[in-house]
Design a protein around this nucleic acid. Sequence first.
DNA 1: TTTCATAATTGGAACGTTCCAATTTCGTCA
DNA 2: TGACGAAATTGGAACGTTCCAATTATGAAA
Lengths: 346, 346
Amino acid sequence: MVKERVTVIDIARAAGVSKSTVSLVLQGSSLVNEATRAKVNATIRDLGYVYNRSAANLRQAKSKIIGIVVNDLTNSFFAELAVGVDAVVQSAGFVQFLANTGEKIERQREVVASMREHGVSGLIVSPARGTEAADLAPLVASGIPVVLVVRDIAGAHVSSLTSDNHAGAMAAVRHLIERGHQRIAFLGGFPDTAVFEARMRGYRDALIEAGIPVSDALIIGSAPSRAGGVTAVEQAMMLADRPTAALCFNDAVAFGVCDGLRARRLEPGADFAVIGFDDVIEAKTAVPALTTVSVDPQGMGQRAAELLLKQIKAGKAEPEAIVGSVRLVVRQSCGAAVERKREALA
Amino acid sequence: MVKERVTVIDIARAAGVSKSTVSLVLQGSSLVNEATRAKVNATIRDLGYVYNRSAANLRQAKSKIIGIVVNDLTNSFFAELAVGVDAVVQSAGFVQFLANTGEKIERQREVVASMREHGVSGLIVSPARGTEAADLAPLVASGIPVVLVVRDIAGAHVSSLTSDNHAGAMAAVRHLIERGHQRIAFLGGFPDTAVFEARMRGYRDALIEAGIPVSDALIIGSAPSRAGGVTAVEQAMMLADRPTAALCFNDAVAFGVCDGLRARRLEPGADFAVIGFDDVIEAKTAVPALTTVSVDPQGMGQRAAELLLKQIKAGKAEPEAIVGSVRLVVRQSCGAAVERKREALA
DNA sequence: TTTCATAATTGGAACGTTCCAATTTCGTCA
DNA sequence: TGACGAAATTGGAACGTTCCAATTATGAAA
């Protein structure tokens, strides 16, 4: 079954033209006669020719591959992000090289190096925790367009696409305050990340704005996962002066918080208000449906891809920092529905 | 910023050796003198040389890339599968090309073609719904090792790694029967897939074995997602003779079923027994923790990768069909914990 | 028919690596 | 000192494509 490779020369011979003509056909050039094109295409099909992109890349030094590296593929936020990127990238005739770093800097280094070796023409990176500008320096110096998503890195001289974490968190907390909550916790997330920092600042600022004292005891970090949410809410409920509501670092944490509440026979939404962050697809269908700050991961992936493609096309990478707007989508987990029901009864 | 490419020849010149020697160093050959190696490596670092894999692939026609194509990356089962593959593949010095088909055959065709053009040395495929043996024929004919995961395809002459869906479903339903359930539903999944077919057969066989009549009304298909689970359980609860337990097509459906139950003020585990399938990471931390048939997606990805690497190394693809064993992990959603608590009180 | 522009086609030289066969260098032993 | 095997190094020919400059075919105008 191991056949000899069919090359452009074999096609040329079989079709009675030169290899140059075959190459022209392959590239869809308008220079070639319609009849010739048809004949060549037929031969290509007949011989089962497979285009050799390595050879093409070697000659023309631009590859139609774009790389995307994410820090945690098992988090559906990033999976959706990747899907968004893929959609755009692929309809532009590029193909996606996806790698998962699992938050490990070392792995990230390897993966980025490997992508460079394969000649990617651009890179979308959601950097692993603790990535520094220096880590990206050689990449940037090589002139390959890079778009940072989700997490920005100070001093890296590349484009970035983040979301307005501060405004989102403020909106969420304001909403909670409007509903009458005073003891509001901030649950989950690694405190040493810029995203945590921004969301937490938004949380504090909203409290300050409303004249509510900020208590550090109510800010409880954890892994940004469902399991992390469970432990964070457990810790929160051991406090002497328990919170009645929480803004969570992300949706995964929020789901965990709901789980943890139920484990203590508290119904999220009715007995305790929960707001998430990201608006993962599941947020809509969960019960209670999750009130959350919508970041739209797929849309973000698409925008990142478009930004990157633009830079690739332009040739030079003029760094721009886009911060996407964000909106609070009110569903049930913050108690809005319950209250509405009460109002209807009154 | 756009530099001239540094090549092996530049290195050779700068280090005062020949390009062949540099190539030898690059490949870690033992033929080269230690001092020379050090000098060359230093030069490589100094000049910021980046290896050009396209050129290498062109010459040696084997690529160190393995491709993985999945049908739905937003389903965490497949995301975890990909992570499992990545771990193995990467430690073998390969790099992973991941593509998502979103269950679209056409997209799958494109993606596979693109991977061939890039010269992948093997492919792990979780085929899109409706994929036929004929779709894979050209790929197989080309002699590239292929491993099918999750879904097998009859007549495709390639290796496959599936799980024992029939046995898993039987074990789950037997467990439900032991707990005293008689009206047991099978919820979710697309009925036209082989996986659905196998799980559903296991469900039926367990009922028959116990002398419980099988009712088609209790077998309710849906999208294999959380949202699908919600609609499926809604439909089930409209039946005149309601079920008291359900085996779900997968964990995503099972979570949806829990959501749907709660929407009707029914507590999963206590009021209605739910069993999932797959054992996604979330299953453990959810509340109630999900009783489920463990398929271990990451492990599956690893095994698939190992199988593929073995075939790549062996050179020829001797197709083998592995069906992984599967075990029921009993947690809370099937009511086991509740019952145990009652027993303790008695 | 010749002439010329335009449309099609073409051979050969790259691209950056690996591999092969050949050569040089080195150390050891007679 | 010379000879010899092993160790280390080397030049050149691939690999399959694209690009360039050059050539040939076509058809319209003179």
